[in-house]
């Protein structure tokens, strides 16, 4: 579904991603873990199409199409979704208008009839029920005055409503207490299907206790330095990033010696 090859990304002339290779198949959940500043969020933003992130080399192929050729909204209509680390507040636009507009743009792209107000309400209530989310937040302005937990839940609700093929969760666990974390993780688990791929970007292992990944990748200094299954996340939890860093730098030093 997603093939990332040798991806290099710069932000304001600083090299952040230095050659990422990643292959994601439908139905898989991949976790990308790494310390602050390793480039995890940059990868998420680059897949979504944020234009302040310059792709200087490499490619992202999604369902056989060149993702880098598309605007962020085109990517979304093709089924790419990102749950934001910091969801944006948009005073004056209600959540329900925002979601209905996005959903109908996606439906139009898929050749489906746009949903009218009644059908949309039915659709969203179904999704909210599935995620145990109160529909009160629908009539409020997008994320305005929401608590940290509400904002993250709102992201998951959006994911449920827009039904993406590929979802990237960018540090969805940050700033959540354990109860909020569980609600969000349960929501994500209910949205796991055999056709939908999910990339979970996180600093901590604890989210992965709830969303159990098929693959775990560790990112350091803009590269995926180690990949494995869910045990790798536990290993990381025990050892901490410092030990991984040490291992990585000794490998890097050896490599440099041989060169």
């Amino acid at each position: 579904m997603l093939e990332i090859k040798n991806l290099h990304v710069e932000v304001e002339n600083t090299k952040i991603l230095k050659g990422i290779d990643l292959s994601v198949k439908p139905g898989e959940v991949h976790a990308i873990m790494g310390p602050n500043g390793s480039g995890k969020s940059t990868l998420a933003q680059a897949i979504s199409g944020r234009d302040t992130y310059d792709v200087t080399n490499g490619e992202i192929i999604y369902l056989g199409k060149d993702l880098l050729d598309m605007e962020p909204d085109e990517r979304a209509r093709e089924g790419v979704f990102m749950a934001f680390q910091y969801p944006v507040e948009i005073p004056g636009v209600t959540n329900s208008y925002f979601l209905k507009t996005g959903l109908n743009e996606i439906r139009k792209h898929q050749g489906l009839e746009p949903l009218d107000a009644m059908d949309f309400l039915k659709h969203i209530k179904e999704k909210a029920k599935l995620l145990d989310i109160n529909t009160d937040m629908l009539n409020r302005s997008v994320n305005e005055g929401f608590s940290g937990g509400e904002k993250k839940r709102n992201e998951i609700l959006q994911m449920a409503v827009l039904e993406p093929k590929l979802a990237i969760l960018d540090e969805t666990d940050s700033g959540l207490d354990i109860d909020a974390l569980r609600i969000v993780a349960d929501g994500v688990n209910r949205l796991r299907t055999k056709d939908r791929a999910i990339i979970v970007v996180t600093h901590y292992q604890r989210l992965l206790n709830y969303i159990v990944p098929d693959h775990v990748h560790i990112m350091l200094e803009g590269k995926l330095v180690k990949s494995g299954d869910k045990k790798l996340a536990m290993e990381l939890e025990e050892k901490g990033y410092d030990q991984i860093k040490e291992e990585y730098s000794s490998v890097k030093a050896k490599l440099e010696e041989t060169v």
Partner: peptide, 27 residues
């Protein structure tokens, strides 16, 4: 940031711009 947020939900740039303008003024 708000423009990008709207776009990632499938809303094209011009429409996103209009939505945000409307929201700004309707305050």
């Amino acid at each position: 940031d708000a423009m990008f947020y709207l776009q990632t939900r499938g809303i094209e740039k011009e429409m996103a711009r209009n939505i945000l303008t409307y929201a700004f003024a309707s305050d």
